[in-house]
Each structure stands twice: as structure tokens, then as C-alpha cells.
């Protein structure tokens, strides 16, 4: 008697639970899956402002991809996106890690102060881009003012007017926003470390540096991998910073794949060309993304 009741209870539950996920599933289908398919199809067509209104859609195979890969702006944007992501990660990961280690010490206000940095991570990108553009301003920017006063530079630099310095400015703005993200994920992992291992090691005479490289880093490996992977993904697709701080300029010096896709679609109204660039960006992201998903799945099956 009891068994029968239990079974029907679970059958009923199956339906209820399906009802729970269904609305979101429909939303995701209409707002994510269909648009992604549309975008992939558009990359094989030739849709622009001229034939868009008429509804003529000619399939042109891989011609659009041939066209973008032959385009030097696209190659520059690809190179920029890669080097931008590389330099952001090279700085924001160690900085975030160092801050996580420092704030994992038990002292007054440590939790509160660590929490405050997260504010940088939750602020809108547009506001961050705005204030960094102001701080890097060549005439009245505080950064030039500081560097001149500290005698690090003789003349104010027009940061956003030259390719390399403009890229540096954007990278610094992104690092500012990325450090708390790295720090908070690594802090969380640090709290899970067993303290007795460290005590044993220090009794055995291992110094701080040794303990860090031989105990902390190996134990944190899963967290480090997921921080770097997520950091790569968030940095690689960045749009607002370059679009707002430099508009991709000077020339194409800070053009990224995401800003180029936007420019093709919404400044030049070559919708298919914009779609093709976005598809390339997506494929590159998914190379790392699949790695991340497999990490999540592995954790899932462990639970």
C-alpha cells in the first residue's frame, strides 16, 4: 500500500518538476537557440541593408568567411583580442591570488575589506570605461598628473591617442574589474584547505614560499583552472571597454572581435559580415568553453 502511494507521488512529481523548467526552457529556445541558429545561417548568406528589406537571402557558402579572413582589420582584431586577453589574465590572476592570500589571514575587518573590492566587479562596464577614460585623459587625467609629479614621465602621455598605450589603458581598466573576480573565487577555495597540512609542513621546516608552491597551489588546482577558464571567457568576449574607451581606435589598434562584429552589423549594416565575425568569436570561446563544461560535468558526477 505504502509502496504504491510512493510511486504515484513520484510520477506526479515528475510532471511538476517538468513544469518548473518548461517556461525557462521555452525562453532559452526562443531567445538563445533560435538566434544562434539564425546567426550561423546568416554567416552563410549575404544579408545587408540593401537586400534586407526585400527579404532576398542568397546563400554564398563560405564566401563571407573567406572575405573576413582576408580582411586585415579582422586579423588585427583577432590578434588584439588574443593579446588583450593574455595580458589581462597575466596580471589579474596573480594580483587576485595575492589579495586572496592576504585577506585570508584572520585580522580585524579582513572579511569586510575583501568584500568591498567586489564592488569593482559588480559595477556596470560602461561606468568603469567612463572613469578610466577620464583618468587616462591626456590633458587633465589623474594618471598623467601622478606620473609627472612622481617624475616617472617628463611629458604627459596622450594615452588613448596611440595604439600601444590605448591598449594598455584598456587592459588596466579590465584588470581592475577582473581582480576581485579572481580574488573571490580563489578566497572561497582557500577556505576549504585543511589547516593541519600547513601546520605539519611548517613543523617539518617548509617556509612560506615552499608551502605556497608545494601545498597551496596543488590543492587549489581545480579552483585555479576554473578561475583561469572563466577569466579567459569573460575577457575574450569583452565589448564595452574598447567600444567606449577608444571606439576600437586609434585606427584599429584596439579593435576586438566583438566590437568589429558590432561595427559590421550596426555601423556598416553588413549583417552577414557581422554575424560571421561573431560566429568566429563564438567558436574560439567554445574551444575553452567545452573544457569548462567538462569540468562542471566532472564535478557533477563526483557529487
Amino acid at each position: 500500500m505504502k509502496k504504491v502511494k510512493r510511486k504515484s507521488y513520484y510520477d506526479k512529481r515528475k510532471l511538476i518538476v517538468f513544469a518548473f523548467v518548461l517556461p525557462a526552457a521555452i525562453y532559452m529556445f526562443l531567445m538563445i537557440i533560435i538566434p544562434i541558429i539564425n546567426n550561423i545561417v546568416m554567416g552563410f548568406q549575404n544579408v545587408d541593408l540593401m537586400n534586407f528589406a526585400k527579404g532576398e537571402k542568397k546563400f554564398i557558402g563560405f564566401d563571407m568567411y573567406k572575405k573576413i579572413f582576408q580582411n586585415s582589420t579582422f586579423r588585427i582584431a583577432l590578434k588584439n583580442t588574443i593579446s588583450y586577453t593574455f595580458w589581462c589574465l597575466v596580471f589579474q590572476f596573480p594580483l587576485g591570488f595575492a589579495m586572496a592570500l592576504f585577506f585570508s589571514k584572520k585580522f580585524k575587518l579582513s572579511q569586510f575589506l575583501r568584500g568591498l573590492t567586489v564592488i569593482a566587479w559588480v559595477l556596470p562596464m560602461i561606468a568603469v570605461a567612463g572613469v578610466f577614460k577620464y583618468m587616462f585623459n591626456g590633458d587633465i587625467g589623474i594618471i598623467n598628473h601622478l606620473l609627472v609629479n612622481l617624475k616617472i614621465i617628463k611629458e604627459p602621455i596622450k594615452w588613448l591617442a596611440y595604439g600601444d598605450s590605448a591598449m594598455t589603458a584598456i587592459i588596466i581598466a579590465n584588470i581592475w574589474k577582473g581582480v576581485p573576480f579572481n580574488m573571490i573565487l580563489l578566497s572561497a577555495a582557500l577556505t576549504t584547505l585543511p589547516t593541519d597540512v600547513f601546520e605539519a609542513a611548517s613543523i617539518d621546516g617548509a617556509n612560506t614560499v615552499k608551502r605556497f608552491f608545494y601545498i597551496t597551489v596543488p590543492l587549489l588546482k581545480p579552483a585555479i583552472i576554473s578561475v583561469l577558464t572563466l577569466g579567459f571567457i569573460y575577457t575574450f568576449k569583452v565589448f564595452d571597454l574598447s567600444y567606449v574607451m577608444t571606439g576600437g581606435g586609434p585606427g584599429s589598434a584596439t579593435e576586438m572581435l566583438s566590437t568589429l562584429a558590432y561595427r559590421y552589423s550596426f555601423s556598416e549594416y553588413n549583417f552577414s559580415q557581422g554575424s560571421a565575425v561573431a560566429n568566429v568569436l563564438f567558436i574560439l570561446l567554445m574551444v575553452v568553453g567545452i573544457f569548462y563544461i567538462s569540468l562542471v560535468n566532472k564535478e557533477e558526477s563526483n557529487n
Binding site: 532559452m28 544562434i36 546567426n39 562584429a261 561573431a278 568569436l281 570561446l285 569548462y292
Partner: peptide, 21 residues
């Protein structure tokens, strides 16, 4: 899986189709 992919994808991927739709 779709949620994970959606979290990773760039907005520019769906921007043009959404605009047209």
C-alpha cells in the same frame, strides 16, 4: 548545457538576429 553555453557566449552572437527579429 544551454544555460552554461549562454553564460559563455558573447552578446554579439545573438545581437544581429535579435535586432532583425
Amino acid at each position: 548545457l544551454i544555460f552554461l553555453v549562454a553564460q559563455m557566449m558573447p552578446s554579439s552572437l545573438i545581437l544581429t538576429p535579435l535586432f532583425i527579429n
